[in-house]
Design a protein around this nucleic acid. Structure first.
Lengths: 213, 213
DNA sequence: CACCTAACATACCAACAAGTATGTATGTCA
DNA sequence: TGACATACATACTTGTTGGTATGTTAGGTG
């Protein structure tokens, strides 16, 4: 007995917090942090203001939690974990696969990348925000750079390129197209971008392959 | 007599409008459109609310004017005119020069690109904004594509690439790095980006040159 | 069962926002 | 010179915002 799940609809602190975070993320993702309205988040979750301010000290703290928990997880799920999981594959093929797996549904394209959205809006206005976002960017970059280094030592990636700089180049391309596609509100812009990025990725291959040949 | 300039300090409608636009641009550039405060613009210009709403129907109309007049001029001055002026030069060299001429002072890097800032914030929220911004993006892309086409017909640019797609690729790179550098609040990120972009631009050259040898 | 605190709920506030109603001064032209 | 539209100035309204002060209730503990 002692049903762990049943009747846990009320007074489940962790779940309330999680629901607030999710709704807040959606609101911020849509309207930006500054224009995100607390009342909208409350309406979406059927939670009251007292409850929200019990879980989060301020709107700013709520925003920081969104970055630390939700956006960080997105980066992890879409990049860091796939990068780790492809330790045994060809690095370039792995990167191509990851890039092509970025959500390309109209809804995603129209809303843009959460990380870029927040960085663009907040990095100049709130140093706390900026630092948190920079952590994610650096982890992202480092994940790619590590894979590139591995490819270089294995002879599948050109040795003349600097892993960190190349990684940031890839990130810049992805984000740049994300902005373009978002402005165009058109998934085809994104698809063209993917094609171009993939073409560029192929150009990173070492010309004379060592392994397996 | 009839001094055209003297005592034209007051009641100069055009000048008042222009000052409002400039101050509004600065405010929007800094805080974003939604968070830009009319009162701040008024304080910065010593203009009253009645005067502002005489020149602009609404905050939205003010924002549209910023895009149409100020941001459009930035695109024109930094890209379209330089692109036209370099009709006689090697297209790749011209593009490299233009990219390297993008303002890289810390202040510019930290604030980002006005066009990207606005696109990122508004394209999903206000179709009027989006359309105006898209006009600028398309003009930008077309300017680059035209130069690439010229290079292709002259034999200095690779014939296998699609001018429009390549142009948008370049734009995505520039904007992507602009976002990265803005988030890092570090001009060095931008400089690394320029180096990478220039390297990529060189890869667009036709391998065997036809003209001049 | 009593008690206590974590987890909420309600009602309110002060600040600020965009926008407007209305008044006033200025230049122009008959 | 006087009428009149242009170009402003002032004061106000209405709505929204993040935040808070003060309750109330659930649920575990002794």
């Amino acid at each position: 007995m002692l049903g762990g799940e049943r009747k846990r609809k009320f007074r489940d602190s962790g779940r309330t917090r999680e629901r607030l975070l999710q709704a807040a993320f959606q609101e911020v993702y849509r309207y930006g942090f500054q224009s995100a309205a607390i009342d909208t988040i409350l309406a979406a979750t059927n939670v009251t203001k007292g409850a929200l301010y019990y879980h989060f000290d301020s709107k700013e703290a709520l925003g920081h939690a969104i970055v630390d928990e939700i956006v960080a997880n997105l980066v992890r799920d879409r990049w860091l974990l796939p990068l780790q999981r492809s330790q045994d594959k060809d690095p370039i093929d792995a990167l191509i696969g990851i890039v092509q797996a970025i959500p390309a549904r109209p809804r995603d394209v129209r809303s843009g990348c959460p990380l870029v959205n927040l960085a663009q809006e907040m990095s100049q206005l709130d140093e706390q925000f900026r630092k948190r976002l920079e952590r994610l960017f650096l982890a992202w970059q480092e994940g790619i750079a590590t894979l590139l280094r591995k490819g270089q030592s294995e002879g599948t990636v050109r040795r003349d390129l600097v892993p960190e700089a190349t990684a940031s180049f890839l990130i810049a391309m992805v984000e740049g197209y994300e902005v373009l596609a978002k402005n165009a509100q058109d998934a085809r812009v994104w698809e063209v971008g993917i094609t171009n990025i993939v073409g560029w990725l192929r150009s990173l291959r070492a010309s004379g392959k060592r392994k397996r040949g």
